[in-house]
Design a protein around this nucleic acid. Sequence first.
DNA 1: CTTGAACCTAACCTTACGTCATACTGTAGG
DNA 2: CCTACAGTATGACGTAAGGTTAGGTTCAAG
Lengths: 251, 251
Amino acid sequence: MPTFYRVSDFARLAGVTVRTLQYYDRIDLLKPSATTEGNHRLYQRSDLLRLQQILTLKWMGFKLDHIKQMLDSPTYDLKTALLLQKTAIDQQIESLQVASEALERALSVDDIDSYSIDDAHLNQVIRAVMFPQQEWIRSAFTDEAWAGITTRRLQYTDADFQQFERDWRELTDKFAELQHLPADSEPVQALADTMHKYISLFSAGDSEAEEGVRQVWQNRQQMPSDYQMADEALLRFIQHAYEIYIKSEEP
Amino acid sequence: MPTFYRVSDFARLAGVTVRTLQYYDRIDLLKPSATTEGNHRLYQRSDLLRLQQILTLKWMGFKLDHIKQMLDSPTYDLKTALLLQKTAIDQQIESLQVASEALERALSVDDIDSYSIDDAHLNQVIRAVMFPQQEWIRSAFTDEAWAGITTRRLQYTDADFQQFERDWRELTDKFAELQHLPADSEPVQALADTMHKYISLFSAGDSEAEEGVRQVWQNRQQMPSDYQMADEALLRFIQHAYEIYIKSEEP
DNA sequence: CTTGAACCTAACCTTACGTCATACTGTAGG
DNA sequence: CCTACAGTATGACGTAAGGTTAGGTTCAAG
């Protein structure tokens, strides 16, 4: 003779709302173990265990349909699921931290004390937020090309940037391997083509932005040393090959 | 004679989807600066600046209607908004970190290597996740009362717990002030009543859970020293007052 | 003038419920 | 047994920020 709880009592017991229990019932996530003749839900304490599992997994960030799968299939790979979830959460934390730091920088912009907002202000904040110390890059672009670049930049995650860096390094490594060939030879030009496609991707078909990239590339002596690559001869080789490629594409 | 972009070009330029631009148009967040006779949207580069502002703020975690307010009212208090947003994000980070640590603990449960899931397994994981080292508390509760407590616990945020602690300290401080009065005097019993209401809140009307709380309270010598309060005399005073209160309520 | 790509709007889909609106059930008192 | 009235059930609509079709229209090249 088990004790039964009506919805509101059971809800209070578990710290959720009645609506939540009704919802979980409807999506077959948690069914009451009995009902009255009049179709009112009756829960037992044993239902509390299942609800505890559900709420714990939910608290960990799993979605309800995922939780249903986990609880309903006894062969579910829990360890992998937990691992994936932790990875996802850690990624979220990382990008939130980036945003938090950006907000911190935004708050440190002097003029913001005026407590008002106009385009100039806001853009100053945005510049402070997105590109803390890279004025030497910015100077190569027109205002509007720059707006395009910074805007597109927002779409990428940290993982994307890491991939970019890996790709870029791979590309320069390949150039290094072919450094003994003439810059206008076919394999080198093929690399230049790949490089061009990459730059196009970055500038998204924005010709002003592309021009800016070329400027940065050519004025690379101004780069802070952190950004400079070691092998100046290799850089000149790449630049030469790229110029040949561009000329051959724009007759 | 400004250059116009059609939606798809402008979308590519900015790195968003066409649907997003259509949506921003509909909610009056970003209108194209012109349209064709056939009602196709035409954007200019100057629209890109506004879109950049929108996406930057969005990336910071602001909601779109909030962004609209910010951009449309020139007297908007940007600094406060940024500050509030940073606070909110930092809170999110904190609770995600708690979840991440919990998942870490869950992954360190030995038996999980079996790559399967059943109630016992899952509950073991849950226990590891939610209550790392407090077996001394758990031992005072029945399994089901414990399930209720851990489940309710999920509903609370860090801020709630901090509030709990503050309330609790305030309560004990008040007891300390009245320590010169007899335990059955009216002001002391009033405090005991407050304390009882507080415990009831914690146990959500769960009588088994309440009993467990009383057990923990009485066996407080087993607590690790971190949890012990300094003044043992005060504790005995509180316990005495509380016992008198309970007896007077359950005749 | 035709064709195919790009574009338009409208409408439904997603999550995890909250919030009504309306109808029904359970129970205590008379 | 009847009536209040509290509790409950079901269904519909709303949320945020678009994604995803569906079906019709416009653009630009040939």
